[in-house]
Amino acid sequence: MKPIAFHAVGKSFGATHALCDFSLEIPGGAFCVLIGPSGCGKSTALRMINAMILPDQGRVTVGGEDVARLDPVEHRRHIGYVIQSVGLFPHWTVAQNIAAVPRLLGWSKPKQADRVEEMAGLLGIEPALLERYPHELSGGQQQRAGVARALAADPEIILMDEPFAALDPTSRATLQAELERIHARSGKTIVFVTHDMDEALRLATQMVVMDRGHLVQSGAPIEILRHPANSLVGAFLGGGSIHMRLLDRLAVRERSTPRRTGATGAIAAGASLRQALDLMLATGSTRLAVVDEDGTWRGEIHIGDIIAGGEAGTSDASA
């Protein structure tokens, strides 16, 4: 797995500084989400990885090699690329679109066809849709095809620029789940740009908060939620509801204790603390039994565990 690194990168477009002294390391296999307000330079940083934009100062390296020294066309063929407006080729069928990069790489026809079929299966694209043209597809189906096209040549790195921003909430949630599954299974490095905090917290293993061309904070989502580097990050993370978001990220099993006080309701150990709180509010009880996936008893969680965790829990960060 090739790591990606930015070394003191600077880039200006006319008078605007898109990136200033930007340094970042993305380990191989990471799901790195770049997040920040619009104009913060996150898309610029993403597009530097596949040499769509070259830095004015500093270097971007992929697997230790300076991107600026690579043949950009060849380099891009080994990196998946998905954008918000999808950019499917309107004059090609869905199957031809998915096979675009394998064809560029000179794969044989049968190998291309096999891969198209495999990708359609992976992304849940019905075989009947493969011979259709992009304009005959819904927005969600189009972006599935877009992701399939990016994955088709089995690249080690996938770049995604707000890929789900234009989708309806249901399609977005499904595609997020599938992307999570694909990442977990393939171990590919994914660099993902979004301005949606919930999406970032859900998907990221490494979250990078940016503002006006600068890297403000980088780390695991839970770290950033617990220790926002400054008030700006805090505000961007959701201001007043930052602790609720933290509850979202923490599992019940992390706060449950093996005691038996006769709680009436039960909740799964893998559920989030927020779901536990929600269930307490719904049932009016302050205690819940905690059970494993297979239904075996594990302990209990009390409302005090959830609330005390807010401040006190910051010390057991490595949980």
Binding site: N50, V73, R76, S85, V86, G87, P90, L159
Partner: peptide, 17 residues
């Protein structure tokens, strides 16, 4: 559309193709 050209460039189409 710009998106189509951007996607093509990002996927590794050279200028001739």
């Amino acid at each position: 559309p710009f998106a189509v050209k951007d996607a093509a460039r990002g996927l590794g189409f050279d200028r001739r193709r």
